[in-house]
């Protein structure tokens, strides 16, 4: 089972990310959960969302405290919350940042694998808004093989309708551009 924790801000679509990922996994015949942090957070506040993906039925219904992967949608969050909290040492941290790793490193309490992508720039370029949820899905898929890239097409097309293609393009770019440190 892979457990993923997403960090975003209210309104940035972290919940949509977990939904798209869960639907893609379920579409592949896998088992998955996607759920938000159950809080009253409003737009702009730091929020979390979670995914579990497995080949067999998932019984666990608790928060994810020891994720395998952490995805950070908003570059500013690393100075506000410890995004690496509980992350397994052999796990993976995927950050959206335009900064070089040396500038980011002081804020990250994690010595394992870290991958960076400038998702905000991609989102601006492809979507015209700094919403990075679908973009970061591309980076996650590249780094983990949690689902196949094509499995995300249907859920994203269903959710985003006529702007689905732009989202898929952004996702593809992040897939190509994400780099391990």
């Amino acid at each position: 089972m892979i457990e993923v924790r997403w960090h975003g801000r209210g309104g940035q679509g972290a919940v949509t990310s977990v939904e798209m990922l869960a639907l893609a996994a379920i579409g592949e015949g896998k088992y998955a959960q996607g759920f938000p942090s159950f809080g009253p957070e409003r737009r702009g506040a730091p929020v979390e969302a979670f995914n579990r993906v497995d080949d067999k039925r998932i019984k666990k219904r608790q928060r994810i405290y020891r994720p395998d992967v952490v995805v950070v949608l908003d570059p500013g969050l690393i100075t506000l919350v410890n995004v690496a909290e509980g992350l397994k040492p052999e796990g993976l941290l995927i950050l959206n940042t335009h900064k070089p790793f040396t500038e980011v490193k002081p804020h990250i309490q994690f010595d394992g694998r870290i991958a960076l992508v400038d998702a905000t720039a991609i989102a601006w370029a492809e979507l015209g808004v700094p919403i990075t949820n679908t973009t970061m899905l591309g980076a996650l898929v590249k780094m983990t093989d949690i689902v196949k890239m094509e499995s995300l097409s249907e859920p994203i097309e269903h959710r985003f309708g006529r702007i689905a293609n732009k989202n898929l393009t952004a996702m593809k770019r992040a897939f190509d551009e994400v780099k391990l440190v």
Partner: peptide
């Protein structure tokens, strides 16, 4: 509530 209502699953 939330534990089930807000969870996406198959």
């Amino acid at each position: 509530g939330f534990q089930l209502t807000h969870v996406v699953e198959p």
